[in-house]
Design a protein around this nucleic acid. Structure first.
Lengths: 335, 335
DNA sequence: CTGTTAGCGCCTTCAT
DNA sequence: ATGAAGGCGCTAACAG
């Protein structure tokens, strides 16, 4: 049924070892022999069995990527960065989704490890002690991609979320706003949640603006929660004039919530987000936001992983990439 | 270094076979023995090696999913359907992206086959003869998911794109529109391209509306091409009053292009799309569109694949799921 | 209910 | 430059 290396060897009149060599591009094969083997492979339609190869060589040349949330808009771009570098180093990558459920994330990590991947990328979710515990059972390197662990013990590639938020709010303050609301993520989320909230607080503090807790709403990162938050803000006695959303998707919800109430962005209300998802350019007005270098986050984390897999020594295992304010049309000076 | 089934056997004072049995939930093990083995596993931190297991059993309990375009908005929802069913049948799924490049799609298919997946899902891309040829070298079942091959030789799960387009255009006609433009996909794409164009033509024909080729623009499925198309329409002497876009993303581009020109949707211009991507509800006005049952497409195709993998006999290997018109706010009667 | 024994398809020394 | 042979870690009959 299935044709094996042995069949090819017989067909070509050589030994299995030789076939193995040509399949693996080992230079120690006479060109003529190589040709014979290739012909036999062609004739028989031989396809190497990666499972057997993995068992024998103890390497699978594949890295597993766990995606806590496949619907996350950042994901595709990060994945592209990962893949480009992976291809460059001849690794296959396999993606596994975990639906944002911690239990499933752990399960997926274990599945990938059982499959003997040569390395693991954990992308953009919250990293708990349970995760760390699962990571610790691994004897292949793991790097966090677009996230970090609080303790800072794992290799990781991410931006400085606190400063990103800080810069966004500074932009609003720079335009003269003082009543600045925030639509936050859950504060249990260190990166997209807590850190961004801290950045908001710091920017206000530095400008001598008192923090007004009634101006902070916790959302769930989704569009709808942006709408809800803004509806709440609009009913406040003393309305804010600007809102900082911890993610673009919530920022876009905010824009629409404001527009649905008959107000205009940015004339009546300025809105700024973080992430620079593709949709930020697919909304009216175009969203002003702080861009994360998604592609680079993916590329750099994969590059870091290749080094770790090759046991090259890396100077800096926690890298922080730069974010950038993207000025578009959703922020205006206070009227 | 790595602990194997053999180590566990020694530690528990049983044979490898017994350890294998408990790991695989074979009922033929005395509870007491089972307990001993579990304890040994715990003590040693044993993790089964899926590669070795795959080689020995000739099954990997994993199915590969090739994703021609990871940025495609439908993808996440389809993937969710696939996964839910896969979990139900205890299959792991591994995703492989191919960046919409045919050459890479073929490569990914081969990689997955080399990895000895038990089945393959090819999701939503154009299926060429080269694809078919690659599929034919497989000795595991393959099903097309959210796409079909022209010849109709492969198992597949999809909607009827021609009728979906037809229904969308009928809706426009029902509202009194007669000058109806279309933003099409590339006509080489049988499903999202050609079939939807055919549906457009049929709807016009049936209503006695002459096809005006100047009202058809070919886009590339992306937002920007929706904007461009509509800019072109707006410069026409006799403007259309409604536009049918072959995909929601182009439809949303159309909405914004119209708005950017100072006109209103749907007052000045009706817009309808196909797909019902999540963003269709994240735009103003909300997009009227024809919904594809993405989750179901994923779920049904995975279910079909499980049957094929178990060699159960399936009555109908090409299934067509129903689409549905979702009336929202982007279509109005002709003014 | 448990142990023994062959492989699964390939890589990898070690000879030659 | 090539071949022979011993595993890699596990499953699957087959015996008992």
């Amino acid at each position: 049924m299935t044709v094996t290396i042995y069949d090819v060897a017989r067909e070509a009149g050589v030994s299995m070892a030789t076939v193995s060599r040509v399949v693996n591009n080992n230079p120690n094969v006479k060109p003529q022999t190589r040709k014979k083997v290739y012909e036999a492979i062609e004739r028989l339609g031989y396809r190497p069995n990666a499972v057997a190869r993995g068992l024998a060589s103890k390497k699978t040349t594949t890295v597993g990527v766990v995606i806590p949330d496949i619907a996350n808009a950042n994901f595709a771009e990060v994945a592209r960065g990962i893949e480009d570098i992976a291809n460059m180093y001849h690794y296959n990558i396999i993606l596994c989704n975990a639906d944002k459920r911690k239990e499933k994330e752990i399960r997926v990590i274990n599945t990938l490890l059982e499959k003997q991947v040569d390395g693991l990328l954990f992308m953009g979710g919250v990293v708990t002690d349970e995760h760390i515990q699962a990571f610790n059972t691994s004897n292949v390197p793991i790097v966090l991609c677009a996230t970090t662990d609080e303790k800072g013990t794992m290799p990781s590639v991410d931006i400085d979320h606190e400063t990103a938020a800080y810069d966004a709010v500074r932009k609003l303050i720079g335009e003269g706003h003082t009543r600045i609301a925030m639509i936050s993520g859950t504060l249990q989320d260190p990166a997209n949640g807590y850190a961004r909230y801290q950045g908001y607080k710091r920017a206000l503090e530095e400008s001598g603006i008192a923090l007004d807790e009634s101006l902070v709403r916790v959302g769930n990162y989704r569009y709808e929660s942006g709408i809800e938050a803004v509806q709440y803000f609009l009913e406040l006695g003393e309305r804010p004039t600007a809102v900082f959303a911890a993610t673009d998707e919530m920022a876009i919800g905010a824009i629409h919530g404001i527009q649905d109430a008959g107000l205009s962005v940015p004339e009546d209300f300025s809105v700024i987000g973080v992430d620079n998802i593709r949709m930020a350019s697919m909304v009216r007005p175009l969203l002003t936001t702080v861009a994360q270098p998604m592609y680079d986050i993916g590329a750099v984390s994969m590059r870091l992983l290749t080094k770790l897999m090759k046991k090259e020594n890396v100077e800096q295992a926690r890298v922080t990439l730069h974010h950038e304010l993207i000025v578009r049309n959703s922020v205006a000076p206070r009227g």
